[in-house]
Design a protein around this nucleic acid. Structure first.
Lengths: 213, 213, 213, 213
DNA sequence: CATGAATGAGTATTCATTCAT
DNA sequence: GATGAATGAATACTCATTCAT
């Protein structure tokens, strides 16, 4: 019944604090170049303490990835199921939402780091494919099919269309994480505007009745 | 007149052999996780021999990247300058050619590894942006503008269109290098067919007078 | 109030233990020929532990030199300032004291090793010149001048006299450290007796009124 | 009967050229810090060629030391045996000659390097003691005794006197080689003048009838 | 539980030495 | 003989992990 002591509160928050620290540092410097002591320090604990929560650097990495995946997919799927109206609008809206919530923030770094470390963590790569990539494609693919079914979209092949919807965002994400400091092509346009324009371009090719330009 | 000795022949080939070994291993395992001795072994020489040709692992990495870049860009630019006819055809053809020559083979790994290691080699990242990314964008962007100018394309904004043309290929490349072993979505379609379909989709949105489907 | 744990006690003693081990080994085998692991082993710790205390072999060397210098100079200077009486006696006494405290023990090895490694550590060489050699010469030179001023010594040139006072001791020191095992000339006379005799000889040339032999 | 070809002449000179290169580099940088390739380069030959003349770096070092020792001792001994006149003059003259021929030039570096590397080359240390140190002491000691016998010197103990005659020169030699770049005390006096003054001081204590100052 | 001192396996790099040409 | 390409033993240093306090 007694309220949790500050110490207890602290302790309960530890795993998440470590995960957050790991996320930030792994994204910034990569897995190999991040020392476990740095992560502990950033989380405000001593080196040894980290190992009370995660038995190894590898396990911490896996936990960090799992913690940052599949956050928004179920959410988006539910949203999509309920939605009624033009699919094109929903797609555009979902892209913007994903960029705002995932792509832009640190969590987007997980996409990059998964790509980088996939070879080292095959188990995690499979997990990522099964839990993130495949569901995401299924979600988008389902929407494309709904669009075709309701006559909104032309009868395009689904898989390439899904790729065309996903690729630009992921590419922007990776590019910013890798060359953001060196390629200042985005001075003229914000990432959001760029996404919008890309979406418009794609939808123009997708819609059965393109808007008059 | 004297024929080069086998030893000499061997010596002349060494740098390229080391570069090839480095490419394969860096792509497969990442920079940090690749031991310099492994590279030497794969090139069929002893540890110390590597250092006769490249003074450090870092320099070897840089040489490897430089060796695999700027090979196809000038080539494509020349081809584009001479071309007369529908831009759409040229674009489609260039994409296929790039995929066949770069994306598919080991050289494509350089794109992945640059993305992965850019943070560790800022100097190299800048080089890559200046020598590869910027020229590539300029080339594609120029073609898009020619297409618009000759009335073939709708008056779309150039930059997002360039992204839409580049992203799918790069995304496929990275995806295959990272999750190829785990994501078997490509069983049904070959990468080439996928690219074709993506291109068709995009061009449909791009062309002033889309073909009747 | 809490007693320091054995571990803590150990930790506090480590730096000195490492310094002592380094002194012994560097003197015995030279800087380059001493492996850092040997030093650690001699101090009773593992390789890695050494690097917790000194960031590199170079820094360990520097710390070791600093730890063994400037200990006796200030002491001797104070002693000299207070002294009243025949300078000759003071000089003789100081020589004997220096030999007993520095020349004979391990600390004397620092003189040898500084001589040996000065080329490799120019910064340290300057430190040694400024902190040890120059003050020592100043101290001895001051005493010679006092001796001349009070009519005890002939009006000899100061600098050569200082050299004549210092050289024999240093020469003995270096000789013992280098050839002690091979040159058994000292069987007949102890180092102390030899020093005494050398001193007597020099003073005989120095004193305005030599003792009748 | 045919005159030796230039190539032959070159070959005959090789060992000495290698020895000279080794001397210069070992003195300048120390044994461990001198790479055998540097020595070869300085002698104008390739790395492998060095090993045709000396089977190892160690052997080259030993040969270099032997080549530079015992050059002037026999000579001086002969000179001393013939000499008639005041011993003090002979001693002063021998010191100056030794400094000019050995101490000053590169050959003097051998004294330093012997001191440095004695522990690593015990066999060489013994050789040095037997061939250089002991004969030198014997030569000087004999002169001191002659001086005493002919009433020129006071009846001083021989061994300490020998030390007092040798130490200043050796000390100057070592000091210059180690701290020459950092200790500019010799600005006011040349080494030769310093030696002269030291000698005068010592002789004043040595002579039965000191000159009136 | 938390800590951080201690550990030692693992790696990049150097350089004396060999030997095919 | 002379060369210099190739070798691999040797070593400084790092950092994930352990465990006594």
């Amino acid at each position: 019944m007694s309220a949790p002591s500050p110490r207890q509160r602290r302790k309960d928050a530890r795993p998440q604090e470590l995960l957050d620290a790991a996320l930030a540092l792994f994204v910034e410097k990569g897995f190999a170049a991040t020392r476990s002591e740095e992560i502990a320090a950033r989380a405000g604990v001593a080196k040894g303490t980290l190992y009370r929560y995660y038995p190894s650097k590898d396990e911490l990495f896996k936990a960090m990835v799992r913690d940052n995946l599949s956050v928004h997919i179920a959410e988006s799927a539910a949203q999509a199921a309920q939605y009624e109206g033009p699919i094109a609008n929903l797609l555009a809206q979902m892209m913007q939402a994903w960029w705002a919530k995932v792509g832009h923030g640190n969590a987007g770094g997980v996409c990059k780091i998964m790509m980088v470390e996939a070879r080292h963590f095959p188990e995690l790569a499979r997990f990522y494919v099964d839990e993130v990539i495949t569901p995401s494609k299924a979600l988008i693919g389902g929407l494309v099919q709904r669009g075709i079914a309701r006559g909104e979209f032309r009868p395009v092949p689904v898989e390439p269309t899904v790729h065309m919807l996903i690729a630009p965002m992921l590419h922007m994400l990776l590019h910013e994480h890798s060359f953001g400091a060196h390629d200042s092509c985005h001075e003229a346009m914000s990432a959001e505007d760029l996404l919008d324009a890309q979406m418009a371009l794609l939808l123009h090719g997708l819609l059965a009745q393109p808007p008059r330009t």
